[in-house]
Amino acid sequence: MTDTAYKPKLSRLFRLQWEEAQSKYVLLYPEGMVQLNQSAAEILKRCDGQRDVVTIVSDLEQAFSMTGLANDINEFLDIARERGWIV
């Protein structure tokens, strides 16, 4: 992902929601559901159309006191875009 101005946003077809019974976040869409692991959920929570990718990375590195997350996050965003979860 080379476009630095890109501000990922959850697609209108998907709803991100915490599900108590499953103890995880899920993406809900017409007649379907994606169960998310913690890191996927934390990234998607920040795909609000306001933050660019650099901001999302620094947010997450700060929140989890880690460094060097950029590659993993970019990889996930590529997959999420391909699956239509984010635009």
């Binding site: 108590e20 019974a21 559901m33």
Partner: peptide, 8 residues
């Protein structure tokens, strides 16, 4: 309450 999230 049981956990269903999709309702048709």
């Amino acid at each position: 309450r049981l956990g269903a999230a999709q309702l048709g």
